[in-house]
């Protein structure tokens, strides 16, 4: 009904944090801070991955909701909002399905960040020969 709104809201928060983090990193670079390590993926980049996943998913799911007639271009935009019973069902869906969607994407992003850091820190191997 409107489960994509949870991810969209998280994406908005992530975008704000990303902007703040980017400014901090630029200041650190300008000041020549020793905390800036060459072999670590900056937080602003990692947060951009999360934002792209959350917002991209939310936009495509919003399209699905338009397809099914659950989102309209006129007020109140969500068809469920015109009936109190439907609105309660919508909020329940946002609290269950919507929150699970946002949590799964955040968890996948967490795993991705750990894997990406491990890959960056891995010593460069010589190109492998194919055996067959």
């Amino acid at each position: 009904m409107a489960c994509f709104l949870v991810s969209a809201a998280e994406a908005a928060v992530v975008k704000v944090v990303e902007s703040v983090e980017e400014k901090k990193e630029q200041q650190a670079l300008e000041n020549g801070s020793e905390n800036v390590s060459a072999n670590v993926i900056p937080w602003s980049v990692r947060l951009r991955w999360l934002f792209n996943m959350l917002m991209g998913g939310a936009v495509l799911l919003a399209f699905e909701h338009v397809w099914h007639g659950e989102v309209t271009p006129w007020f109140p935009f969500l068809t469920a909002m015109s009936d109190p019973g439907d609105a309660a069902e919508m909020f329940h869906e946002m609290a269950t399905v919507g929150v699970c969607m946002a949590l799964l994407i955040t968890a996948a992003w967490g795993v991705m960040c750990v894997a990406a850091n491990a890959i960056v820190k891995r010593p460069e191997a010589a190109p492998q020969e194919t055996k067959d």
Partner: peptide, 10 residues
């Protein structure tokens, strides 16, 4: 990222 995000949500 857009397609993976949508895939996880679906």
């Amino acid at each position: 990222f857009m397609f993976w995000g949508a895939s996880l949500m679906w």
